[in-house]
Amino acid sequence: MVNANEIEILLVEDNPYDMELTLRALKGSLINNIHVARDGEEALEYLLPEGADKENEPKNLPRVILLDLKLPKVDGLEVLRRIRESEKTKLIPVVVLTSSLEEKDVVESYRLGVNSYIVKPVEFDQFIKSVSELGLYWLLLNKPPF
């Protein structure tokens, strides 16, 4: 089990193969404290548990959120919007990691305040490379606001 307090990355991904590939890429870079949400609802439940009072809030929020856009139930853009609306989560860096090259998705994501937009490469090598660089960048190079 992964300790919630040690969570560094929240990965929101519905495709199990993509998830596995992503996790493999991240673990290859020795990043292990990852929480996976399988859809938008789960991600929001994790970040902003409904009905919970402030005492019970997770003290250690993820340092970065990797967010797919096409998600069941609540889609990625909606999740992003809710994250940025909430006082608690608005400062967490969010990286969209998606297959979509659609311009309107890119524009909408940036409009909602995404920190980075990455298109998943089809080639495995490039995919591994992109994700591991991404993980290293946000966890090691980037200076977070908290």
């Binding site: 193969y17 993509d18 590939l21 297959s99 979509s100 659609e102 495995f124």
Partner: peptide, 19 residues
């Protein structure tokens, strides 16, 4: 849109898992 998204995912899986 779905082509861009949904078609690439299996491709990625095929490539990824082959590798």
């Amino acid at each position: 849109y779905s082509v861009s998204h949904d078609l690439r995912a299996p491709l990625r899986a095929i490539d990824g898992f082959s590798q």
